[in-house]
Design a protein around this nucleic acid. Structure first.
Lengths: 209, 209
DNA sequence: CGTAGAATCTAACAAGCGTTAGTTATATTC
DNA sequence: GAATATAACTAACGCTTGTTAGATTCTACG
């Protein structure tokens, strides 16, 4: 019989990663100390440097992982659809789902751009632009096909992403509304607005929460 | 003839206030040092304490001033209107105008809640709730009068404020679009959505930027 | 068992932090 | 012009910061 325990399911590095996201979200990057982070990860201050070369690298790792996951998975999410309006629906649903599921990481990725070194900033901003471009392209295709009326795609995509990303700043899992309910309502809101006339005449299913 | 110069138009305290907003926005509250702030305000480190009792008090002063101005002036802005839909239009216009005009202060007020001491936090959160309630009440009135169709006022108001507040994170005065153009487009977006059908049939003037 | 490598700890470093006290300079008032 | 009040400066305090080096413990494997 083997006497040794199996390797832990989550590596210490993964624990530090997760606790860093939580702490950076709560106190900000500059407001968080390596010693407190280490403590939450069950380790003493200096030991963190066995897994990361610097505090900055921890932040960058979080952001890079978040952005590359966002880009990869939003593309998967829209790949199954052909109509731009359905692509946009799927993209919004994924965006909101990910921003609530991994809310610590996404919040930090949105809020701590200013804490990145010059090179790291360039890399992350590039990925963020890439992600935003996916949404803009769907919208442009939707306009070209006559499915959407968007006077300014750049403004509209910024408005959309900002209102959806913001969910992660107030959403708490123990709340009464499910993530998919919230997502459905945001989609309805963005597609049809709040006007009585337009909403009443629009085609799709109505969502009442 | 009087030989003394007139007192400066902007007091040093006002300069420190303004530079603090700029610096806190750029580097965050924890990431900003009193010495750097003092330097930008044309003064040595210790001199700041002649105008403020602590770094924390500077932050609180910025936030309190911003929130009370927001509350006061949004009420003035909607006071001239009677229809909820016009009130909301005016409220959004003001919100965006203020968030772009004093973008340093509003950005800090939105982003640095986590850096506030317990008591200060309670005060500011209370004011923020007050401000949000103004928007919710307009929406509820709009629904009651049949002017708006909003399934969930709380969600809709959060979405609206988040997308409008977000403008201050990318808006630069030297850009090609004017603030009022952006505001008009956001209003159109929020009122009518992006769907082809609903937008085409809605009443108001169309905005093409 | 014994050894190698990974993981952690301990202890210290130089630098920078917010804040304070005491002093000097500038402006106002009688 | 002396007296007073305001504003700014200097220099230091105790503490914390990110980071490093070296010693120590744990784990896997022949």
């Amino acid at each position: 019989m083997k006497s040794t325990l199996p390797p832990p399911v989550v590596s210490r590095k993964a624990i530090i990663f997760k606790e860093a996201a939580r702490l950076f979200r709560e106190k900000g990057y500059s407001g968080s100390t390596l010693r407190e982070l280490a403590g939450k990860a069950g380790v003493k201050g200096g030991s963190v440097y066995h897994h990361f070369s610097s505090k900055q690298e921890i932040l960058f790792t979080i952001m890079e992982h978040t952005m590359s996951t966002l880009i990869m998975r939003v593309q998967e999410a829209i790949a199954t659809e052909t109509k731009p309006i359905d692509k946009l629906r799927k993209a919004i649903q994924f965006h909101i789902a990910y921003h609530t599921a991994d809310s610590d990481e996404t919040f930090v990725t949105d809020a701590e751009l200013r804490s990145l070194d010059a090179d790291n900033l360039t890399a992350i901003v590039g990925m963020r632009d890439h992600y935003e471009r996916i949404f803009r392209q769907i919208m442009e295709e939707g306009v070209a096909r006559g499915e959407m009326q968007i006077g300014n795609v750049r403004l509209a995509s910024k408005a959309l992403l900002q209102m959806c990303t913001g969910i992660s700043s107030w959403y708490r899992p123990e709340g009464e509304k499910s993530i998919s309910d919230i997502a459905d309502y945001y989609i309805e809101l963005f597609f049809r607005g709040i006007s009585r006339t337009s909403a009443a005449e629009a085609g799709g299913r109505a969502v009442e929460l």
